[in-house]
Amino acid sequence: MATTIGRTGRERAQLPGWILVPAIIGALLVLLPLVAILFRVDWANWWPLVTSPASLDALWLTLRTAGISTVACILLGVPMAIVLARGTMPGRRLIRSLVLLPLVLPPVVGGLALLMAFGRFGLIGQYFELVGIRIAFSTTAVIIAQTFVALPFLVVSLEGALRTAGTRYEVAAATLGASPTRTLWRVTLPLLGPGLAAGAVLSFARAVGEFGATLTFAGSLQGRTRTLPLEIYLQRESDPDAAVALALVLVVISALVMALVHGRTQHD
């Protein structure tokens, strides 16, 4: 049956009609709240609200930090994914689950954990403090928090891509006498292309949306640590219209990012 679907495309397996009922309810659950935002937006004041200095500071800070976090995710996540997918060290499965933990960890817990590590009295943070580097309350803290939560997204997508690709080309390269490093650069990494793009875009989206860990670990100061989600959370206290206007911006950014990922997976 599965092969029929995959091969010809003209012959399709018939789905039972009832399956659409829960599927549509599920889709409504996701889409209705997003549509509801559109109904609440104060369109007359939308532009002034999203272009206020506080909003622009938050938007610029968010894009900047999320961009840097994505680069950090790529630099660290690609080697991680390769080691996890191809490596043979013992306890790989355990390491894998631990490394992917931020995927399921409540963000506040992530923030606390980061504080315990990089805070003023943290495991590593105390030594930074000695040499005069303070991470808490800095933009660096925002980037660390975003990388912490976004990294697993990149690792998961890449690992999946690596497993799907299989090892036969690498084995062939090795048989033909290529060194491990050469095989990595010339065979493994090119194979990763589409998966890497999708993973990077997902990580970026996750970094843009990061909230809990940032609030706990980095604090909230305009232009330095107050990213778009924190700005929305704060504006909600005094100016719900501004919060809704900014929420729409965030939804649009996320939707664009998802469209980008989806477009890529459709093409391959």
């Binding site: 995959g6 399709r12 018939q14 009609g17 659409l20 009922v21 409504l28 799907t164 459709q266 391959d268």
Partner: peptide
């Protein structure tokens, strides 16, 4: 090899009359 994680089930080219998939009816039921 599967070409993607999920095959989209819309975009079906051969939606013939008499199929059990009727989106309107399903929406109504939902």
């Amino acid at each position: 090899r599967p070409r993607g994680p999920v095959r989209p089930m819309r975009r079906g080219r051969g939606t013939r009359p008499g199929r059990r998939l009727n989106p309107l009816r399903a929406l109504f039921a939902a």
